[in-house]
Simulated assay, not measured.
Amino acid sequence: MPAEAVPRRRHLLRDGPRGGDQRRRLRPQGSRHLLDRRDDVRGRAEEGRDGAGRGPARHQPLRQEAIAPRRSRSRRSPGPRDAGPALDERRARLVAGDLLSRRPWTRAELARRLVRRGAPADVAERVVADLEARGYLDDAAFARRWVEIRLARGYGPARLRAELRARGVAAAPVDQALAAIETEAAVERARAVARRRLAALRSAPPERRAGRLRDHLLRRGYPAPIVARILREMLGVDAAGEE
C-alpha cells in the first residue's frame, strides 16, 4: 500500500523520534495488518452515512469484506513419525558398525536397535550373527566388564544380575561373571556403601536408620545375608531392625 494513502497522524505513525509514548510505534505492517485498507473502510462508512443519514462514521460497523481476513494457523495433529526406508543388509552393517564404535553392545541390544532403525528382523539377526562370529560382539566379555564397572560403583550381585538379564545377556555368561565376585570383597564393598549412607542419615531418627540402611543396601543389590551382617556390625541390630 503506498505510504501517501495512509493519513499521517502522530499518534498512529512513527514519524517522530521514539519516546515513551508507545502509541507512536503503531503503524501498518502489510496487507493483513489491522490498520491496512482503513481508507476503504472509512470511505464506505461515509457513503452509508450520506445515503442513510446516520451518525458519524466512527459509529458505523465495519464491513467484513473491507477487512482482510486473517488466516487461522492450523496445527498439525501429532502423529507417528514417517517411517524411513527399510535397511538392507549392507546399510544395516554400516549402522551396526557405527553403533559399535561408540560403546559396547550386547547381541540382543544391537538386534533390537537395528530393528528400530528400520532393518527387518531377519536382516538384523544375520548382521548380528556375523558380527558375533567375527568377534565384534561378545556377551561374556560384556558381562565381565559390566560387573567390574558396576561393582566399583557399589552395586551388589543381585542388582548386576538383573541389569545384565535386562540387556539380553544369557544366564550362563551372567553366572560366570558373578562367580568371580568373592564373598569377603562383596562384604567390604557393602561396608563402604553403608558408611556413606549412614553419614547421610545423621539427621534421621535413630529408630529409622536401620530400616533405611537395610532398604538402601537391598536396592543396591546386596543379598540378604550380607545386609544382615552389615546391620549387626554397624548398628547392632538384625535385618528386621531389632536389637
Rank of each mutant, 00 (worst) to 15 (best):
A186Q: 08
L217S: 05
R195T: 14
Q60P: 00
S101L: 10
P157S: 04
D21V: 11
A141D: 13
I149R: 09
P78Y: 08
L131F: 15
E207A: 10
W146R: 09
P173V: 10
A129K: 08
R32K: 07
R197S: 13
Q29A: 11
R113V: 15
E109N: 11
A108R: 11
R159D: 13
R232D: 11
Q60V: 12
R202M: 09
A57V: 13
A45D: 00
A166D: 10
L110N: 00
L87E: 04
L217M: 02
L198A: 01
P78S: 03
A121T: 09
A199M: 14
R75Y: 12
G84Y: 08
E89P: 03
Y155T: 11
G79N: 00
G236W: 15
R90D: 14
G135W: 14
D98N: 08
D15W: 09
L99D: 10
R27W: 12
G16M: 11
V41F: 09
I67Y: 01
G135C: 07
E148P: 00
G97P: 00
L201T: 01
A224V: 12
A180Y: 03
G79E: 06
D238L: 09
P205D: 11
V174F: 08
R191G: 07
L231Q: 02
A86E: 12
P61I: 04
A121L: 13
I181F: 03
R214I: 10
V187I: 14
E4W: 05
R73P: 07
P80D: 03
R54I: 08
L94V: 14
A66M: 04
L114V: 09
Q60L: 09
A96S: 10
A86T: 14
T106E: 09
R102C: 06
G48A: 03
V6T: 11
G97I: 08
R71F: 08
R196C: 06
P157K: 00
R32P: 03
G84L: 11
R42V: 10
L235S: 01
R49N: 03
W146P: 01
R214V: 10
R24M: 15
Q60K: 02
P78V: 13
R195Q: 10
A166Y: 08
A143D: 00
S31K: 06
P104R: 07
A68P: 00
L12W: 01
A190D: 06
D21I: 05
R219G: 13
A210W: 05
R219H: 11
G221P: 00
G79C: 09
S101I: 06
L99N: 06
A5C: 08
A140N: 02
R159C: 10
E47W: 03
E188H: 02
A210Q: 01
L94N: 13
R212H: 06
E46I: 08
R49E: 07
A111H: 02
R63E: 15
V127K: 10
L114T: 12
L13P: 02
E109L: 12
D175P: 00
A224Q: 05
A141T: 12
A192P: 04
H216K: 04
Q64C: 03
E125F: 15
P85W: 07
D215R: 02
S101K: 10
R161W: 04
R214P: 01
D238G: 12
Y136E: 14
A199E: 14
F142V: 13
R126A: 15
R102D: 09
R159M: 13
A57F: 04
L34N: 01
D175G: 11
A121D: 13
A108E: 15
P28R: 04
V227A: 07
A52C: 03
